[in-house]
Each structure stands twice: as C-alpha cells, then as structure tokens.
Design a protein around this nucleic acid. Structure first.
Lengths: 335, 335
DNA sequence: GTGAAAGCGCTAACAC
DNA sequence: GTGTTAGCGCTTTCAC
C-alpha cells in the first residue's frame, strides 16, 4: 500500500489530461490557466483516490524556493524561546510557509553548522535568534542570498529586533528603588544586581539601565553592587549568600537578572526566617508564572516575544533592509 | 554578491572536471569512486572559493529522501515537550538528519494538516508526539510510505512509546498514602486526585494507578475522590476550594495531575494559614524545578522524555515494527 | 580515475 | 482550455 507515491504523471495517465494541467489543478494555479471546472474536479478526485501528495522538494527545486522559514534559537527548553517558537510558527504558517526551528545550545560553532544546514535545505528566510555570534551567520546567509534578521541579540550586518533591555531594567530598578524608599534611612539601603554575563549584550544594557536609575534616584551607582555571576542557579545562590554575609543581612533591594538565577536566589531566601524577607524589594528580569505565587511579592519584566517575532517578520519582508536595531518594550509585571 | 548560488556545474567548469566528479567529491562518495586526492583537493578549494553549498532539495529529489526527521508535538511552550524537542534534535543530528519539529496546539485538524505538510516535504520519518488522534495520522504516513511512531500518547496502527503512567501514579499515590498514615485515624483521612481529562489515555492510566493503590492500601477507592477537572489552573483552584469546603479542611493527601493544575491548587493553598498545610501530603504528576522550592514539600513524577525519544528512534528503525506499546518508567522525585 | 547521459517530480514558457 | 518541452541541481548507472 502506498509503496511508491503517486506523481502528477500517474494522475495525468488516469485522467487523460496532461501533466501540466494536473499540476496546475493541484497547486492552485488553475484559475489563471482557466482550466475547466469539470477537469479540475475530475483530477482532484483521481488525486485523492491515489492519495496524491505534492512533492514540495521537486516543486521547490524548480521554483528555487523551499517554503521553509528557518529559525535558530539557543534552547527549546526555555519559556522565552519556546514562546517565540510558537509565535514564529503562527506567523510562518499564516504566510503559507513551514516553520523549521532548530536549537544551537549557544555554541557558536554549532550555530554555524546549523545555519549551513538550513541554507542547504534552501530555507526562504532565516531568523537568527539569540545567536552568540550573529555576524558570521549573516555573512553565510548573505552569500547564499537568503534574507535574514537578528532577533533578541543584535548584529551589525543585518537588521535586528531586540527587547529594550535598557528600558526594562530601568523600570524594574525604578520600581524597586521607589518601594525601598518607604523604609529609607536604614543601613543596607542599596539595591543589588545579581546574575547574567557581563560580556553579553543584553546583560550590559540591563546593567546600564540599572546603574543609570541608581545614579538618578539614589545619587550614586556603585559597580560593586553588580554581580554578573552567570545564569547558573548555584552561582546566583552563592552570590546572595556572600552578599548577605558582607552586609550582615539582606539589602533593601534585589534585581535578579533571569528566572534561572532567581531559582538560586530563592533557594537561599527560603532558608532565612520568614520575616527577614519583609523589608527587601525583589525584582526579576524575566517572567515565570510560578514567581507570581511565592510567599513574598516579586516584580517581573516580561519580554514580548510575540512582538519581537512579528516585527522581525515585518522587517525581513522589506527590500534591502538596513542593519538597524529595532527595540521592543517588555512589560513590567507588578505583584 | 552571491546572488545566484554556485552549482556543481560552475565548479566543474572552473576545475575542468565533470559534474559527476565534482558531485562525488562534494557529497562524500569520492572514496568509492576512487577520485584522485589531488582532484578532490582542487575541487574542494574551488567550491569554497565560490561559497558552494550543496542543494539538499535537488539531492533529495534524486535520492527520494530529504534528510529531514519530522516530529509533531502539541506545544513548544511546555517543559516536557520542549525537553523532548531537545532530545529529538540530538538523536536526529547524530544520524545526520535535520530535525523538523512543528507544534499542533492539540487540534486534531491542525495535526492532520501539519502531517500532510511534513509528508509533502518528504520527511524521512515521522514522530507523532502527544497527538489527540494518532491513528488517522498513522494512516496518512502509511499511505505515503513513511516510517512513523507514536510517542507519549499511544495509537493502534503504529508502535507507541509512552510513559508508564500507571506505574508513576501508583508510586506517587503510594508515597502520599504512606506519609499520610503517620497521622492516621484522623477524619479527612483520604487522598484526592485533581486535574486532567477523564477521556485522555494518560489521565485514565494515572487514575487507574491511583485507585488501585488506594484500594490496596486504604481498603477502598472512592471514585468521588477523583476530579478530572481539566488542566486549567482556574478549574483546579475551584476544585480544591470546593473540596476544602466539603471536607471542612484539607484532605490528608492531594494528587495533582500536572504542574499546570498545580498552579491553580497552589493559588488556593497559599491563601490558607500556614499551619493548615502542615498535615497534607502533596504529590504532583509532572515536574517543575520551582516546585522543589515551595514552603511545603512536594513529591513529583518526572517523565523521562529523553528515554522516550531514544526508544522511539530505536523502534522506528526496525523493519516492519508491530504496533506494540513500549512503556518507559518516569522517576519519582522526593522532596 | 573520470565523463556522458538519463531522470527524480515539478513548473513555466510557449504553442495551438 | 490544454499539451509540449525544457530545465531546476543533483545522483547514478554505464562506458571507457
């Protein structure tokens, strides 16, 4: 059964029509060709009898396209990126394309290997999301003549659509500092930044926003209050613990840079007596539903993955887009 | 730059070799053809000068394959499925295939549409994961001659690899009941099951395990203690609240069927005085790292997505596999 | 060790 | 309204 897939020739034979007639009926171009309704119906009937399925490889080869919309992401198992995947699928499908999403595990070498594979599969466009080194990838796409765009992390060779990390961090910091001031005058009256990677573009923008607001609202911004200890929970846990030791207690405010880092911080906080937490204002850059339900309130910054993807599609469809950076505001979610 | 991609003919022209020689050098079959090392080197040099990239569409068309490993999943934005995606990618890549993962949003119609698309793209194999109606999809794959397998939810027309839900639920129930017995003799000394969909295969298996252990350990299993109220947090929250009202307090044990349902239950529990929770034993079928860090202990069942995928690959590579069901044990994670 | 030629399934230009 | 024909870029006999 169905050993060999039926082709338009099989249908042409059975129907007495020619291959091109069959093809145009089956690929939707029959209106233009003014094929008779009767012919079309007959052909479709036979096609379904034979379980015909169009061979998009052959079609694509001929048309020099594939109908595949390619996207690379760092990880599938991540709320932010998996939400982007879903938006990407929706947008791709609404354009009649099949989404092809592949993860790179943040490895620059793997990024290149995978982009090469997608190019070989003739993807019609490439979304480069969260790439550690976007420019070499842009280069590869350019050489293959494939429209492409950077998402979430910017590059210099193609348009980029990224979160407004500076704005998000500023707002979150402002929220924290305002709340802190209710109990001003105490010692340890500063806000501390924990998590992220110092060389990462997004972390840098967030630190910048954090520092600027500290300077504006508190009169000073001490770099010693920023610990970009990485994203690992263990590192973040160690970081708060050390901080707690140094200060002899919790600081007035905590800016945690990602939910993953938050996991570690939370582990430490949970070990403290309950009322130790009552005076610290906590904010987390990134969103997770469970954080809304803890014993203490947490403000969060939720990135707008959907909008990032929508804008990226919009931009990639421009002719000759300039390598500009488009910022998309995240949302501040208050407890 | 790179407007038109280079083909083997461009390289043939420049190198003086024939297209077939170039092709075999560039696709790895040159060892068999005993192409001279010198020729190979020269060709590869020119290929890289021209930024040649193999056209897998043309290659696939000719070889009647695509190099694509297809998988459908219900959702990307889900810990379990996104973890499976990562395992799937690893396995696919190690076989030299490109993973093509598409989500269906649990809509049977969309499932069929997407499977049809993947078939049109000539995927070499199809992994049908968490499909609400797997059999029609099997049918489509069979007619197209595509090896396929069901994962996570079983079908009757193809081999299936699924979690041992009965075992997982039994173990979780046993854990809960054993702990409950420490404080036995109280009223409200029963364990209640909340969440999931009664008609869903997996939920049914879990309810079965739950009931069997209740019967074995507590002497009776009251169907009134099972509320498959769906997966929505709101529904689950309403369910515990009602239960609390009926019993005049919390039951001795709670079996929450999924982390999503848990979110709702948690919302209610949090509203209770802290010591109200000290006597209830809580288990959650499914795993989320944040649940390990709550104010009260939670036992969890963690499904082994990696093993599911590994087994599925193993089975799909069998010749003429029977439509058997392979069970993979989840892991009980104690607080 | 290498080349010539046929053909994978489809589309598009042109013919009638 | 529909048929004929020439490829898309590659692989694969078969020939030498």
């Amino acid at each position: 059964m169905g050993k060999k897939k039926a082709t338009i020739y099989d249908i042409a034979d059975r129907s007495g029509a020619s291959a091109s007639t069959v093809a145009s009926v089956l690929n939707g171009s029959w209106q233009d060709r003014r094929i008779a309704e009767r012919t079309a119906v007959r052909i479709r009937q036979i096609a379904s009898d034979l379980h015909y399925s169009r061979n998009l490889q052959a079609s694509g080869l001929r048309k020099a396209r594939s109908g595949l919309a390619g996207m690379i992401i760092p990880k599938h198992d991540n709320r932010f990126f998996s939400a982007m995947s879903e938006s990407f699928e929706t947008e791709a499908r609404s354009r009649g394309m099949c989404p092809l999403i592949v993860s790179t595990l943040r490895d620059p070498k793997e990024e290149r290997r995978i982009v090469a594979t997608l190019i070989s599969h003739n993807v019609d466009q490439m979304f480069i999301t969260g790439a550690t080194e976007p420019d070499p990838l842009s280069d590869m796409c350019a050489k293959a003549g494939i429209p492409h765009i950077n998402v979430d992390l910017p590059g210099t060779l193609a348009p980029s659509v990224i979160s407004d990390n500076y704005w998000g961090a500023s707002e979150l910091t402002r929220y924290i500092v305002e709340r802190m001031q209710d109990g001003a005058g105490r010692a340890r009256d500063a806000v501390h930044f924990i998590g992220g990677i110092g060389t990462d573009h997004n972390t840098r923008a967030r630190v910048q926003g954090f520092m600027d607001i500290c300077r504006a609202m508190l009169g000073s911004a001490d770099p010693g209050r920023v610990d970009t200890c990485g994203y690992a929970p263990e590192a973040a846990e160690a970081s708060v613990r050390a901080l707690y030791g140094r200060l002899g207690g919790l600081p007035a405010g905590l800016f945690i840079n990602s939910t993953i880092a938050f996991e570690g911080v939370f582990r430490f906080l949970r070990s403290l007596p309950h009322d130790a937490l009552s005076h610290v204002v906590i904010g987390c850059y990134d969103w997770d539903p469970f954080l809304s339900h803890l014993q203490f309130p947490v403000a969060m910054v939720r990135q707008n993955g959907e909008e990032l993807v929508a804008r990226a599609f919009y931009m990639i469809e421009e002719t000759a887009p300039a390598p500009t950076v488009t910022l998309v505001r995240p949302e501040l979610i208050l407890p």
